[in-house]
Design a protein around this nucleic acid. Sequence first.
DNA 1: AGCCAGGGTCTGC
DNA 2: GCAGACCATGGC
Length: 282
Amino acid sequence: MNYKSQNGDLIVNLPDFSLSDTLDCGQCFRFEPLEDGSFHGVAKGRPLTVKQENDNIIFFKTSEQDFEDVWLEYFDLNTDYNQIKEFLSEDETIKKACSYAGGIRILKQDPWEALCTFIISQNNNIPRIKGIVSRLCENFGEKLSCGCFSFPPAEKLACLYPEDLAPLRSGFRAKYIIDAAQKIASGQIDLPKIQSMPIEQARKLLMTIKGVGPKVAECSLLFGFYKTEAFPIDVWMKRALTYYYKDGFPEKFRKYGGIAQQYIFHYIRTCKDAIPDEYRKK
DNA sequence: AGCCAGGGTCTGC
DNA sequence: GCAGACCATGGC
């Protein structure tokens, strides 16, 4: 991976990366495609417009400083995914998923934002999750220079009541969002501590939040804390497990199970040939 | 109209 | 420990 500045933009040469798959595979909910093929969104309180042209990723109006301080880490660009993919491809199913969706990287999202958005994700679909998250930011985030909004900190939501979240139309999830915000803002759950905690302990602690069960906890750990062994199982992964892994997901690949899971998740959701139709229902 | 969505809680056995 | 009702909302 190498990069250079050009006319105020930052250009990264990065083979085997898919920007659209990475931003649109259901791991984050804050980037939207624009008409020219680029994506616009906000992460870590900063707006970004970014576009892929062949093997180049163009970070518009981004200095080397900003790139190195923020986006290099956010897009996990210092990790050698080829090595991981090579290891995971010893498994035939993951190999297939890799060749289809291997351009995905696990984004290093803000822990609070990942936790909160995956609380919203429960029993919900991705387009509507995006809508609710967007309204959450518009109503309670800070307006940025681009006219878009940052993700509201837990402290901002901790003092609200469920009815205050009515504009989000998040339904029964409103009370969960507020309970999470209160536990984070009060320090009852210390997010930086979770980062360095044994994963089993982190799971249990996260699940003391109302609305956080096993699946949301795993998503939080994988996408908000970069725990690559976290393995979220939703309805799609259940289908994959019953079809491909009748004896369970192989222990050998657990270390990178979360990354494999993301390849498989994107593969079976969007590739019509991945699993037979009868496995798509129930 | 009914089913489904990156599920979880609560109740009853 | 486990099944089943229920939970809001919107797209198909």
